[in-house]
Amino acid sequence: RKEMTAACTPRRRIINLTSVLSLQEEINEQGHEVLREMLHNHSFVGCVNPQWALAQHQTKLYLLNTTKLSEELFYQILIYDFANFGVLRLSEPAPLFDLAMLALDSPESGWTEEDGPKEGLAEYIVEFLKKKAEMLADYFSLEIDEEGNLIGLPLLIDNYVPPLEGLPIFILRLATEVNWDEEKECFESLSKECAMFYSIRKQYISEESTLSGQQSEVPGSIPNSWKWTVEHIVYKALRSHILPPKHFTEDGNILQLANLPDLYKVFERC
Rank of each mutant, 00 (worst) to 15 (best):
V45H: 02
D158M: 06
E250C: 14
E183S: 04
E188C: 05
Y139H: 04
L54K: 02
H32T: 07
Y204D: 07
I15F: 12
R12H: 12
E268S: 12
L88F: 04
V161A: 04
A53C: 09
W52L: 08
L190P: 00
Y204G: 11
Y80H: 04
S206V: 12
P168K: 03
M4P: 10
K184G: 04
I233N: 13
G116D: 03
L90V: 04
G252K: 04
L150W: 01
D115S: 03
Q56W: 03
K118T: 15
L129W: 02
I144V: 04
A175W: 12
S43Y: 13
N84L: 14
V218R: 09
Y198H: 09
K131I: 14
M38K: 10
P223D: 10
Q56A: 05
I151C: 06
F140A: 13
R201S: 13
P107R: 06
F187D: 01
C47E: 06
T176R: 01
M135D: 03
L96K: 00
L142I: 03
L39D: 15
G252Y: 13
A55I: 04
P168F: 01
D158Y: 03
L39Y: 05
P107M: 09
P223K: 08
R11V: 13
L172K: 01
G31Q: 09
Q24P: 15
A175H: 01
Y198F: 07
K68R: 09
E33A: 11
H40G: 12
W226E: 04
T9K: 06
T9S: 11
V126G: 05
E92P: 13
E182L: 11
L255R: 04
I171Y: 00
H42Y: 13
V20A: 12
E231A: 14
Q76L: 14
E231R: 14
V234K: 00
I27V: 04
A7F: 15
T66G: 01
A55S: 10
S109T: 14
M4Q: 05
E33M: 13
R13I: 14
Y139R: 07
A103D: 00
E119H: 15
D158T: 06
P50F: 04
A83S: 05
H57R: 14
L17K: 03
V45N: 13
P107H: 09
L104F: 04
I222E: 12
E114Y: 15
K227D: 09
R36T: 12
I169C: 11
S191A: 07
Q30Y: 12
A55T: 08
L153V: 06
L63A: 09
T229H: 10
Y198T: 01
H57I: 05
V34G: 12
L88E: 05
M196Q: 07
L121C: 01
R36N: 13
I157Q: 06
H40N: 09
H57D: 09
W111R: 02
F197W: 03
N259S: 07
R173W: 00
S240L: 08
L54C: 04
I169V: 09
L260H: 03
G220K: 07
I27G: 15
T176W: 03
H42S: 10
N159L: 09
G46V: 03
L21K: 04
L150C: 06
S141Q: 12
R12T: 12
E147W: 12
A103S: 14
E108P: 04
L69W: 13
E108I: 03
E71D: 07
T66K: 00
V266G: 15
N259A: 06
E113F: 11
L174K: 00
E250D: 04
S216N: 06
C270N: 15
P223H: 09
F267K: 01
L21M: 03
E25R: 11
A6W: 15
D262I: 13
A100R: 00
K132I: 01
R89Y: 15
Q24E: 12
L90I: 04
W228R: 11
Q51C: 06
S22H: 04
P168Y: 12
E123Y: 15
P168L: 00
R13C: 14
G148F: 06
E119T: 07
P223M: 05
G220P: 09
D262N: 10
A83H: 08
Y80L: 02
P95L: 03
L164V: 05
S191P: 01
V218S: 08
I205G: 06
P261F: 14
I144Y: 01
L164P: 03
V234F: 14
N28C: 11
E217P: 08
L17T: 05
E29N: 07
E185A: 05
C47Y: 04
G220M: 11
E29C: 13
T5C: 14
A237F: 12
S212M: 13
N259P: 04
E71A: 10
T229P: 10
I27M: 12
C186W: 03
G116P: 15
N149A: 08
P219L: 09
L17Q: 07
S199D: 00
R89L: 14
C186V: 02
L69F: 13
I233S: 11
T176G: 03
L153A: 01
G46D: 02
F85A: 10
M196W: 05
T176S: 05
T210M: 06
I200D: 11
S43M: 10
G213Q: 05
Y75R: 04
P93I: 04
R269I: 14
E3D: 11
A122V: 14
H232Q: 11
T18K: 05
S206K: 07
W52N: 06
G31T: 10
I157H: 08
I77E: 15
E119W: 15
D158P: 06
Y198A: 03
L243A: 10
S19C: 05
S221N: 08
Y160I: 03
H40P: 15
K265M: 12
S189F: 06
S43R: 08
S221Q: 05
P162Q: 00
N159C: 07
I233V: 11
H32N: 11
E3H: 13
G252S: 08
L153N: 00
V48L: 03
Q214H: 07
K118P: 15
L211G: 08
Y160H: 05
N259C: 06
H32S: 05
S43E: 04
V45A: 10
Y139V: 04
Y204R: 09
V161W: 03
I79K: 15
F85Y: 11
W228G: 05
K227A: 07
V20I: 04
L104S: 00
H232A: 12
S199R: 05
G46E: 02
I15Q: 09
V48S: 11
E113K: 03
Q76Y: 09
A100M: 03
L64Q: 02
E119K: 02
K131Q: 13
T210W: 06
P163E: 08
I125M: 07
V87F: 05
E217A: 10
I77T: 12
Q56V: 03
E134S: 03
K265S: 04
M196P: 00
M4F: 12
Y264D: 02
Y235K: 10
D98R: 03
A83P: 10
F170K: 00
A55G: 06
Y160G: 00
G220V: 09
W226P: 06
E92G: 08
C186M: 02
L142G: 01
E92C: 08
G110C: 02
L211Y: 05
S189E: 03
I14E: 04
P95R: 04
L136G: 01
A83G: 08
P219V: 08
M38C: 13
L211P: 05
L156N: 00
N259V: 04
L17V: 04
L167T: 02
R89G: 14
M135V: 02
K192I: 08
C194D: 00
Q203K: 08
I125V: 14
N16S: 04
Q203T: 06
G46Q: 02
G116F: 15
L99I: 13
Y124V: 10
R11H: 12
P245D: 14
Q214V: 10
E26D: 11
Y264I: 07
I125S: 03
L61P: 02
L156Q: 00
G220W: 14
L39P: 14
R36P: 15
G213L: 08
N65H: 10
Y80S: 03
T112N: 09
P245H: 13
F82M: 01
S22E: 13
Q203S: 10
M38R: 11
M4C: 11
P244Y: 15
H32A: 05
T5M: 13
K68D: 13
G152T: 03
K227P: 09
M196V: 03
L35M: 05
P95M: 04
T210A: 09
I200K: 02
E185R: 02
W52T: 10
G110K: 01
